[in-house]
Design a protein around this nucleic acid. Structure first.
Length: 115
DNA sequence: ACAATGACATAAG
DNA sequence: GCTTATGCCATTG
């Protein structure tokens, strides 16, 4: 379960008012192709952890959640509550709200003590 | 170890 | 721009 943990920890580093894509998260973890796994990790109930899963969206800047009942609308509401605005196409302005991510050194330090 | 799964990503129609 | 098909990868049964 190392990957999930990495995902959670990295997602927790996303500052309020910013959003990141599954692909970017996966890339920072060293698995550029593991975007699906990242999404799955967030969908998984991280009981006990306060993970801002709503700050993670797809590359198009849209809500990808298949299960809308779970929180497609909720996610949009949460993001708007953090100051993120959606355009007419329900898309997020990546240039403005996109999270630059952590520097490789930061990532290394972040997981240095972790297995 | 194999098959199935999933909140993605990209290419093609 | 939207829908469909294929690839990818870690986790789970």
């Amino acid at each position: 379960m190392g990957f999930f943990r990495k995902v959670y920890r990295l997602v927790c580093q996303i500052p309020p008012g910013k959003v990141a894509s599954y692909g970017d998260i996966a890339c920072m973890l060293g698995q550029p192709r593991a975007a699906r796994t990242v999404g799955w990790a967030l969908h998984s109930p991280p009981a006990g952890l306060d993970v801002p899963w709503h700050r993670v969206i797809n590359r198009h800047g849209r809500i990808s959640t298949s299960c809308q009942e779970h929180g497609a609308g909720l996610q949009r509401a949460l993001l708007e509550d953090e100051g993120i605005r959606f355009d007419d196409h329900d898309r997020v302005d990546w240039e403005q709200f996109g999270w630059a991510g952590l520097a490789p050194t930061e990532v290394k330090e972040l997981f240095a003590l972790d297995e």
